[in-house]
C-alpha cells in the first residue's frame, strides 16, 4: 500500500470522516507547506503524552489541575456533572456558569459493559464529602444528556446523593431557545409540556 493509500485509510477512521473526505484531506496535506505539516505532526505526536485528565474534575488539561479547578474565582459550591470532557467546553462557551465541573467519562450502559464503577463517581462523592477545604459543595447540577442512559446515570447519582445534604438539580429539558415550535419533534414538545413553568 502506498503512503497516500495508507493515509487515506488512516484518516477515514476519524469520526465524521468518510473515504472521500479522507482523500481530500490527504491531497490537501500533500500540497501544504512544510512548516504547517511539521507543526501539525508534532502536535499530534505530543497529544497523548501532554494531555491528561485533571486530578480533581477529570477534564482534559496539560497540567495536574485544569484551568477551571485552579481558578480561585470559580464558585466551588457548585459542581456541574457532565458525561464527557467536551461537554465542559460546551457549557464553558456559554459564559453563564461560574461553578466547577466533574467529568464522569461516560454514562451507565450495562449492555455496552459500562457500569457505575467504570465512571468517575467515587471521585465525585469524595469531592462532595471532603470537608477539609474551606468551601463545601452546596449544589450538584447534573448535565447528562436526555437519553435513557443519561437519565439512568442522573437517577443513579440522585439516589447516591439523597442523604448527602447537597442540593441536586438537573438541566431543564424542553424547547431550544430561538427555535420554532413548528420544528420541534413530538417527543421534545411533550417533554416541554410536562416540564412547563409558571410565569404568573
Amino acid at each position: 500500500m502506498t503512503i497516500l493509500e495508507q493515509l487515506i485509510k488512516g484518516f477515514s477512521r476519524l469520526p465524521g470522516v468518510g473515504k472521500k473526505s479522507a482523500s481530500r484531506i490527504v491531497y490537501f496535506l500533500l500540497k501544504a507547506d512544510a512548516e504547517y505539516l511539521n507543526s501539525l505532526s508534532d502536535l499530534i505526536r505530543r497529544l497523548q503524552a501532554s494531555v491528561k485528565s485533571c486530578t480533581v474534575c477529570g477534564t482534559y488539561t496539560e497540567s495536574d489541575l485544569c484551568s477551571i479547578c485552579s481558578d480561585f474565582r470559580r464558585n466551588r459550591e457548585l459542581i456541574c456533572v457532565v458525561e464527557e470532557s467536551r461537554d465542559v467546553q460546551t457549557i464553558e462557551s456559554t459564559g453563564e456558569f461560574n461553578g466547577t465541573f466533574h467529568v464522569l467519562g461516560g454514562v451507565i450502559s450495562p449492555l455496552d459493559g459500562v457500569g457505575p464503577e467504570d465512571l468517575s463517581i467515587r471521585k465525585l462523592l469524595a469531592r462532595i464529602s471532603d470537608n477539609s477545604g474551606e468551601v463545601s459543595v452546596k449544589e450538584v447540577i447534573i448535565a447528562t444528556n436526555p437519553t435513557i442512559e443519561g437519565d439512568t446515570t442522573a437517577l443513579y447519582l440522585v439516589n447516591l446523593l439523597k442523604n448527602s445534604g447537597v442540593l441536586v438539580s438537573r438541566l431543564a429539558l424542553g424547547l431550544p431557545v430561538g427555535g420554532d415550535l413548528e420544528y420541534a419533534d413530538k417527543l421534545t414538545l411533550s417533554r416541554s409540556l410536562r416540564g412547563r413553568t409558571k410565569i404568573s
Binding site: I108, P110, L111, G115, P116, I148, D151, T152, L155, Y156
Partner: peptide, 22 residues
C-alpha cells in the same frame, strides 16, 4: 426493560432502583 432484564439476569442490584424508577 431490556436494561433491567440484563441486570436481573446477571443478579446485580445496584442499578435496579434506578431502572425501576425509569
Amino acid at each position: 426493560l431490556k436494561l433491567r432484564n440484563f441486570e436481573v439476569k446477571n443478579k446485580r442490584s445496584d442499578l435496579l432502583d434506578v431502572y425501576n424508577n425509569q
